[in-house]
Amino acid sequence: MTDNTLPQADRQKRQLPQVNPVYFVLAALIVAIILQNPAFVEPTGYMNFLKRAAPLAILAAGQVYVIVSGGFDLSVGSVITLVVVGSSMLLNNDPNATWWVIAVMFGIGIGVGLINGLVVCYLKVPSLIATLGMMITLNGVAFMWSGGAPRGYLADSFRFFGRYNFTDLPVIRILPVAVIVLLVLGYALYWLMHRTNLGRMIHAIGDNPRAANLAGVPINRVRIIAFIVSSLSAVAAGIMLGGFAGVSTDVGIGYELQAITAAVLGGALLLGGRGSVPATIAGALTLSAIFTLLNFLGLPQPVRQIVQGLILIAAVAIAVQRRKHTGR
């Protein structure tokens, strides 16, 4: 990106003092799931779990870029819907179109992220409102484009990423493509956030924009890039969800809040400055594990909502207390 480097102090601050508690919570939940349903230790059990959680994990890993930079991206759910509906329109069950359609979708993702970023940085509209407006608009665009319902099928080659499993492998027996995609994109997002100057600049902006500005961080450019990363991850999640489950009109509903929840469970600080990609992915897996566990327990939807609400509040309350103790 640029060759700006930040003061040493910022770099030291970013080192976490101890292991993020989300990993323990995730481990405990997985143990609970195994106790409930021993079949979970079979490859098909945990691989299916990872396959289903992959879109949310990737989405949340992108969302955390915007959160760390001090904003929100509420438009990601509508990007997912737009990707599924738009791809079905463009593909029309033609496998040869797969690659250019995917390219077009990522192009749309860049466009959406760019507009979000420009509106926030130059029109100074708070990201909550800017991306809320984008969410409403994109849902409308998806419907206008399709006339209310998708008009084509998703070709199998497009659905490969979300649906296909490699089978007859040694040891793990099956390996869903979605899990490979999660590993690759998860690592790429981790690398970009925690091993590059861009990641340092995103943290710096969220932590203290004024100081970052004085340190020569190109604030607007970095924030726009954060929004673009988030939108691109939403496109990836959309391609995987469309692949997993096929065409429908309301695929993306609710994913924006789930992604933010996952980031928060992973210890990301709303309004910026702190957040980690691996912990966010763990947060997404935790959220999925909670749903899976409640499912196995046979609890009805309302109870799941209540538990989700309680966990959300508890996670943040605990994080706040921890920060007070460690002085951060």
């Binding site: 609970a32 566990l293 327990l297 609890l299 009805p300 538990v307 309680l310």
Partner: peptide, 12 residues
């Protein structure tokens, strides 16, 4: 969490 969820379910 399990206990909590079960208690909730019972209450409901």
């Amino acid at each position: 969490k399990k206990i909590l969820a079960l208690a909730l379910a019972a209450g409901l």
